[in-house]
Design a protein around this nucleic acid. Structure first.
Lengths: 156, 156
DNA sequence: TAGTCGGAGATCATTATAGTCTCCGATCAA
DNA sequence: TTGATCGGAGACTATAATGATCTCCGACTA
C-alpha cells in the first residue's frame, strides 16, 4: 500500500544519478543525457524521457538541446526535496480523495465523514517527512529522521 | 500521490463508527451491522461487506452471525493502529516495488539501484507514523504527532 | 423454521499505470 | 549548411488495479 509509481521511482533514480555525476569527483558539471540513465538503470528510454521532461518543466532539472545535450540539476541538491520530486511526477500529495476537492466535487461521505480530519493530519505528517529529506540526503548520506508521537502505543 | 484506496477509507470510517458506538454514551457495547454503516456513510453495501469481512479475518473486529448480528471491535481502540487497519485492507506497506521482493522476483534495477536504501528509510518512517496513531486517536481526539529531522532544509 | 445476518466467490466496468510509437524543433559539428 | 544527435510533445495501446455488483451459501436467533 501507499506505493509510489514506477515513474516516480525513475525520477528519483535519474535525479540521484544526475546529482552524483554533477557533484562527483570524476566529471563535475557534466551534462547527462536520457540514454545514459536509461541504460544504466534498465529503464525504458521513452518513458524515462517523459519523466525527465516533466522534471524539467517543474524546475528540478535544466535541459540542453542538441548534440552533447542532456540535463543538469536545476538547483542545488540540498534545495530539492523528495516531496518536490514526487509531486512533480505524481501530482500533489493526497492520501484521500477529499484532500484536494474542488468546488462542486464534494464526496458523498463528506457530510458525515468521521475520518477526514485525522487523515489530513496523517497526510500533513507524511508531507513534512518527505519535505524534510533532500536529494542531497540521498547522495550516500544516511537520512536522519525520527518520529515522535505523544500517543504512541508501541503495539504490534 | 500516495493515495490510500477507497476500501481502506471505508475501513477507517467503519471502524471509527463501530468504536464510537461501542464506547459512546448512548448504546455502549451495541453490535453494529453492515447496513447501518453503509447507509450512514453512503458506502456501497456489498463492498463494505467485503471490507468488514477482511477486517474480521485480521482480528480488527469480531463478527456475530444471525439476526441482530453484526460487528464489534476485536480489541481495544487504543490497541488498533492505523497501520494495522491499512495493512489489513491493502497489504503490507511498501512505497516501492522492491520493498517485499521474494526470491526470484528481483527488479532489473536492483543491481545498480541507488535509491533503495533511502526509500526504505522513508518507508520505515511512514510506518512508524502510521503505527503510532490508533483508532482511539481518531475518536474525537486530536493526534499529536511531530516530525523531527536533522537534515531539514525547509525548502519550498 | 423462517428471516436476518455474515461468508465467499465470480464477475464486470472503470480507471490508472506502464510502456510504445511517431513526428517535431533545437543545437552543434563536420 | 546540412545531417546527426539531442530533447519536446502528443497520441496511442496494453495491462493491471480498483471499485463495484451479483449470486449463492451457511450460521444464527427469535
Amino acid at each position: 500500500m501507499l506505493k509510489i509509481s514506477k515513474k516516480a521511482d525513475y525520477a528519483l533514480m535519474a535525479l540521484q544519478h544526475i546529482a552524483s555525476v554533477q557533484f562527483g569527483d570524476l566529471t563535475p558539471g557534466r551534462v547527462v543525457n536520457t540514454k545514459e540513465i536509461a541504460e544504466e538503470y534498465h529503464i525504458p528510454l521513452e518513458l524515462l524521457a517523459k519523466v525527465l521532461q516533466t522534471l524539467a518543466k517543474n524546475g528540478m532539472i535544466e535541459s540542453h538541446n542538441g548534440p552533447k545535450g542532456g540535463y543538469v540539476l536545476g538547483r542545488r541538491a540540498s534545495q530539492i526535496t523528495i516531496a518536490q520530486i514526487l509531486e512533480s511526477i505524481e501530482g500533489p500529495l493526497g492520501i484521500t480523495d477529499c484532500s484536494h476537492e474542488k468546488d462542486g466535487d464534494v464526496c458523498l461521505q463528506r457530510e458525515h465523514c468521521n475520518i477526514r480530519t485525522p487523515l489530513l493530519k496523517v497526510q500533513d505528517s507524511i508531507y513534512q517527512l518527505l519535505n524534510s529529506m533532500t536529494l542531497q540526503d540521498m547522495l550516500g548520506g544516511t537520512p536522519l529522521i525520527t518520529i515522535q508521537s505523544s500517543t504512541a502505543q508501541g503495539v504490534e
